[in-house]
């Protein structure tokens, strides 16, 4: 019960959002792909003068890679415009709901002026949830079904 309470009262910023990765609309697709690889991340926000205009994720990257698209075109040609986003005061429950309804793995957190402050991810949310029952997850043996022959220390 308390768990449910915290989901609707705790802000999404508690669910380990990533720092947003930002590129200009004029950056080329090739540059953006290399930036994603260097940062080992799967999504980037496209911002024009500090305000978010689109998102480019690894799914978009896959489409371009499969079709052998021109990698010198600007990212603004291929990004997804006006992505679903969260305000900084959105709660964790809302983030989960939007993610599962839309099938998103990343949701940008933006201010009222459209400035991105974070990126809520499915891994961050899972991390947040696991924090509520750490013993259930972190105390598991490395392989299911492996039963120690004797008690540790006994």
């Amino acid at each position: 019960m308390s768990f449910q309470l915290s989901l609707s009262s705790e802000a999404v910023t508690a669910a380990y959002p990533d720092q947003p990765l930002v590129v200009d609309p004029e950056s080329t697709v090739g540059e953006t792909l290399q930036l994603l690889r260097a940062q080992k991340t799967g999504s980037v926000l496209v911002c024009d003068e500090g305000s978010m205009v689109g998102i480019f994720t690894e799914r978009d990257a896959l489409k371009l890679m499969a079709s052998g698209a021109d990698l010198t075109q600007p990212i603004s040609q291929v990004m997804s415009r006006d992505p679903v986003s969260l305000s900084a005061d959105a709660n964790v429950g809302e983030a989960i709901k939007r993610m599962s309804q839309g099938g998103y793995r990343h949701l940008p957190i933006v201010t009222q002026e459209g400035k991105p402050t974070g990126m809520a991810t499915v891994f961050g949310i899972t991390h947040y949830l696991v924090d509520h029952f750490p013993e259930t997850i972190y105390t598991l043996p490395p392989n299911p079904g492996s039963i120690p022959s004797e008690r540790e220390g006994a």
Binding site: Q4, S8, L129
Partner: peptide, 17 residues
């Protein structure tokens, strides 16, 4: 996938729809 797990957890926790 991780989203199957998230869906399972959301249902168990009862995320308000």
């Amino acid at each position: 996938s991780i989203r199957d797990i998230l869906a399972y957890l959301s249902e168990k926790i009862g995320v308000p729809v």
